[in-house]
Nucleic acid binder design. Sequence first.
RNA 1: GGCGGCGUGGCCGAGUGGUUUAGGCAGGGGCCUGCAAAGCCCCGUACGGCGGUUCGAUUCCGCCCGCCGCCUCCA
Length: 468
Amino acid sequence: MLRLHDTATGSVRPLELREPGQVSLYVCGPTVYGPPHIGHGRFTLVFDILRRYLAFSGLRVRHVSNVTDVDDKIIERAAREGRTEAEVAAECEAEWWAAMDALGALRPDDAPHATAYVPGMVALIADLVARGAAYETDDGVYMRVDAVPDYGLLAQQPLSSLRAGARVEATEGKRSPLDFALWKKAKPGEPQWRSPWGPGRPGWHTECVVMSLDLLGEGFDLHGGGQDLMFPHHENERAQAVAEGKDFAHYWVHNGMVTVGGEKMSKSLRNFSTIAELLASHDSRAYRLLVLRAHYRRPVEVTQETIADAERGLARLDGLARRLSLPDPLAAAPGGALVRAQAVAAAPSGVEEDAVDRFCEHMDDDLDTPGAMAGVFDLVSRAHAAADEGDEKTASRLGTTVAVLAGAVGLALRKGVAEVDEGTRRLVDERDAARRARDFARADAIRDELVAAGWVVEDGAGGTVVHR
RNA sequence: GGCGGCGUGGCCGAGUGGUUUAGGCAGGGGCCUGCAAAGCCCCGUACGGCGGUUCGAUUCCGCCCGCCGCCUCCA
């Protein structure tokens, strides 16, 4: 049974589902106004890993993640570039999915757009006004934060303390600095929808309430996002639901930030901050492994060094797959996610069930992926050792277990021997011939040539193997 | 100022009231190899500081120091 940290209670507790066997997961998605950065990549990977592990455990998962396509930043960029908001949003959204696909993240089952939910948001806001939990001002409609008795639950501090720390003054008409905009009245040229308060657009915090309840229903299981969304975004979502008397998310899951040089990554930093930049020079699986090697609630340091370290780990995994010609369970998995029972049944060599159990014990403990992966790397050593001793059966079983467990968290192993071109093939054959003839000068010259062309040259019992 | 989190061997990163104290990377030694590469074997007694509880604390409590995050848009 999975135990997860829940921000609302500040504790790790067993995951009790609304419906047995079925998990409903809502993850706050991107505001589409710019290229996705590695912080977006991390939260996507964290929740992809969570989702895959839930599926691996035999649960059915319904994963919803929104796209915020109306927002101040989109409006600003559209104005700056002389384009429409819809153009900017569409372009950035395409970029978003391309990056997430490249990271190997499964697409959500639903990806609702804020602009498609405006009437529902207007209805919610009108109801909040009718209940006295929201009020109209000159520039919009605001939520009364003190209408929610336990406001501050996710921020883990009481309203009075939040109010004391507020860094923003109350604007004209706002009754408390913490009151937040549900509806923004349109300024000339801005995108707008009709409402009882005149033309305007919804505030950011309302869409997730309406969309999550519409698609997943009351009392859905998990609501996730980055730790920087805990307050005020998630707090404010919850405030609206509570004021409406709705049963909202049962667990709040928040991932830690990406840091560079010990500080939260920001767009002003140079270090390959976008996913496209990262993937231009690194295997996307290395980033997944890097994310896996940190606990999801802790910060993860992303630098050339930590990425390179992850790449070396990946090479170790791939090296085993190459040596043992391991199957790729992910390629065969329906829907792209592995299910334990199926993966085990599909393995001709069998799997080391004890190792799978240990892996699951770590994962069940609030997604202890570093601990789980340590076990996987231990299996790699054991598989090699068995192969060294000529115990092919054991090597194969252990290796298959590695492939299954890596696959469980979305990591596909690559054998990397597939596309060796004709010319390279000929050089390799020539080198084998030279070695047989003990013409080592010739053999070494060919090896230098191959290495210069970017190949890794390994002489095995069956002759030379090259890979990249 | 308020709230939250963190500080483990060169680096990343689990874990535990005491005995044999994960795993990876890097490093050293050995085996294998024509030489390499890959792989295997061996090697590191670490837990921010000061007190306290205890027969015994890295692990529990308190204080202190340091770092980070949130309190504004942010994954």
